[in-house]
């Protein structure tokens, strides 16, 4: 039993230590953000590398999620005689919830793991030390552009995910299941609210972008300079980043849902 308590205590101490390091690194990044915006070339390069190159995955993901959503929800809606609401149902689910969450999870798996590995490998191959010795701040040059690019990319990817998802739902709902096309789109127009649905989805995806991108640069920057260290950094980025996204989603949904 005492062994368990000891292990628990050590785990708790490690958690507190990591959380402290997490906060310190975050506050270390903040002063660099305005300065980094003055050098947009580095950010644009990173948006291409982590955002644009994630597009295919996001589009495929959105398309299939939209199709599955239409298939799953149709049978229930038909029972209540509201099959025409399929479009609104799919759109609300995608814009408010599935778009931001699934796009962020896919982004964490594709782009954030790549960023963590890249930064970790830069440390292992002494590129970060070389920058420091060339009097170039690696936080400014390496970390901040990747972080900002991630924060910008995730809301855009989530929006694309939701849009493609709606197209997937349209294909299945209208062309496969026979829902009326006009009802499909007009219900979306009536039910989906700009502030309650779209804005909350954008806010969520922005927060997920901050969380996932920060996890990637933090894990990469502090990765042990070994092969195992780099792979652990990538794994931790995806695992912890995904858990964070789901946890934050629960909290934000609780605050945003009217009447909760």
């Amino acid at each position: 039993m005492s062994g368990l308590v000891r292990e628990g205590w050590l785990g708790f101490r490690e958690f507190v230590g990591t959380f402290g390091a997490f906060q310190m690194f975050f506050f270390r990044l903040l002063p660099y953000l305005p300065k980094a915006l003055l050098r947009p070339r580095l950010i644009i390069e990173q948006i291409y590398s982590i955002g644009v190159l994630s597009l295919v995955l996001i589009m495929f993901g959105g398309f299939f999620v939209g199709m599955v959503l239409a298939l799953q929800s149709y049978s229930t809606l038909v029972e209540f005689g509201s099959a025409d609401s399929l479009g609104a149902f799919a759109a609300e689910a995608l814009v408010r919830e599935l778009g931001p969450v699934v796009a962020s999870l896919l982004f964490a798996g594709r782009a954030c793991s790549a960023v963590a590995s890249e930064v970790g490998l830069m440390r292992a191959t002494e590129q970060i030390s070389a920058l420091e010795l060339m009097a170039v701040d690696p936080i400014e040059h390496i970390i901040v552009p990747r972080f900002i690019a991630g924060v910008i990319s995730v809301p855009l990817l989530a929006a694309i995910f939701s849009t493609i998802g709606m197209l997937g739902a349209y294909l299945v709902g209208v062309h496969l299941l026979g829902v009326d096309s006009g009802a499909f789109w007009s219900n979306i127009q009536v039910r989906v609210d700009m502030y309650e649905d779209v804005a909350s989805g954008i806010l969520k995806s922005f927060v997920f972008g901050v969380s996932a991108s920060f996890m990637a640069v933090f894990e990469g920057y502090y990765a042990a300079p070994t092969a195992a260290g780099v792979s652990q950094a990538a794994t931790r980025t995806v695992v912890i980043g995904s858990v964070w996204i789901l946890l934050i989603d629960f909290i934000l949904t609780g605050f945003m849902l009217p009447g909760v």
Binding site: M122, T125, E126, Q127, S129, A130, L131
Partner: peptide
């Protein structure tokens, strides 16, 4: 550096 540490 021993490895050169060129930016890859």
């Amino acid at each position: 550096f021993q490895s050169g540490a060129l930016l890859t």
